[in-house]
Amino acid sequence: MADFAGAWVFYSVLPGLPWVEPSFRRIARFAPWIGLTLGAIQVGFWWVLIFLGWPSIAVAPLLLAFGIWFSGGLHHDGLMDTADGLAAGRSRRLEAMEDSRVGASGVLALAMVLLIEMGALIQLGPQAPVALLLAAIGARAAPLWAMAHFDYLRQDGSAAFHREHASPGWDLLPLLPLLALLLPMAGALPLVMGTLVALLVPEWLGRRLGGHTGDSYGATVVLTEAFILLMSALLATAI
């Protein structure tokens, strides 16, 4: 419960749990549950606004803004820093990622991701709520693969505790009830597709960077969420 409370505080700006002192040692295993919470809030806003007569083209950008707000922008900041690092070249990669200034590559990466997500949500229409939940959960599960299979590139980095205290295998256990919950809602094919995206994104980033950092963990979350929404929209169109 202490780790869950830590995940609640670390991954969202929601009020802390008053009955337990948070611990931040092994919080990544509970990140998918925080994703479920944030995704459920977005779904609630979607249903309310659609009920009030808003078109999906207006609701989609609002939901994305709410998602950034409730997560504190933590992962999107990591996306921008990672994009700047990849653009800087291998010799200056970590230096560029540590720079507090955001470069053109970071701005473009964020804009592209938000446009992809917005287009996917508009296309999904009534199927957007289920896709939002799948993306929110899958995106927060993706860094678990990065932590288990790649070295952490900054031993003194602020997110080094994720890798240091990670316990591959056991950290996946809190995810299993969520997968069981999603299966009847999303269906087997979207769930398999989401799982593949959640594995391929951290794998690709880890190979490009030669490992992972706290920034690339955040980038993994945002990119996984965007591609799950995009694949959900493409799958819904094909079916």
Results as ranks from 00 to 15, higher is better:
72 G>E: 01
70 F>K: 01
67 G>W: 09
62 L>R: 06
51 F>C: 07
74 L>R: 04
78 G>L: 03
59 V>P: 03
77 D>H: 11
77 D>V: 06
63 L>D: 02
45 F>W: 14
59 V>C: 04
72 G>C: 00
47 W>T: 08
71 S>K: 00
44 G>Y: 10
61 P>C: 07
57 I>Q: 12
76 H>F: 15
77 D>K: 05
59 V>D: 01
75 H>E: 11
46 W>E: 03
45 F>V: 14
68 I>L: 10
54 W>L: 05
68 I>P: 05
81 D>C: 06
68 I>E: 09
64 L>I: 07
58 A>C: 05
58 A>Q: 04
81 D>K: 08
69 W>I: 11
56 S>N: 12
46 W>S: 01
70 F>A: 05
67 G>E: 11
70 F>S: 01
78 G>P: 04
78 G>H: 02
78 G>R: 02
57 I>A: 14
69 W>S: 13
48 V>D: 06
52 L>Y: 05
76 H>V: 14
73 G>F: 03
74 L>W: 08
46 W>M: 02
59 V>K: 03
55 P>H: 00
69 W>F: 12
62 L>G: 10
75 H>L: 10
60 A>P: 00
80 M>N: 09
78 G>A: 04
47 W>Q: 10
55 P>G: 03
45 F>R: 06
81 D>S: 10
63 L>N: 01
50 I>T: 15
67 G>H: 08
59 V>I: 07
54 W>S: 04
61 P>Q: 06
50 I>D: 15
57 I>C: 13
62 L>V: 13
47 W>A: 10
72 G>M: 00
66 F>D: 14
44 G>E: 13
61 P>H: 05
60 A>M: 00
44 G>K: 09
44 G>M: 11
67 G>S: 15
71 S>H: 00
65 A>W: 12
67 G>A: 12
51 F>T: 13
61 P>W: 09
56 S>G: 09
81 D>Q: 08
47 W>N: 07
79 L>V: 13
65 A>C: 14
78 G>S: 02
71 S>I: 01
59 V>Q: 03
75 H>C: 09
68 I>G: 07
66 F>Y: 13
47 W>L: 12
46 W>T: 04
47 W>I: 05
72 G>P: 01
55 P>I: 02
45 F>G: 10
56 S>P: 10
44 G>P: 05
63 L>P: 03
80 M>D: 09
63 L>Q: 02
75 H>M: 07
54 W>G: 00
48 V>G: 13
54 W>H: 08
57 I>K: 14
51 F>V: 07
75 H>F: 08
50 I>W: 12
50 I>R: 15
48 V>M: 10
49 L>S: 05
69 W>E: 11
62 L>E: 09
60 A>K: 00
45 F>H: 12
49 L>K: 06
76 H>S: 15
62 L>H: 06
55 P>Q: 02
46 W>H: 04
59 V>G: 04
51 F>S: 13
73 G>T: 00
67 G>P: 04
77 D>Q: 07
81 D>L: 07
58 A>H: 02
68 I>H: 07
69 W>T: 08
67 G>F: 08
49 L>P: 07
73 G>K: 00
70 F>V: 08
63 L>H: 02
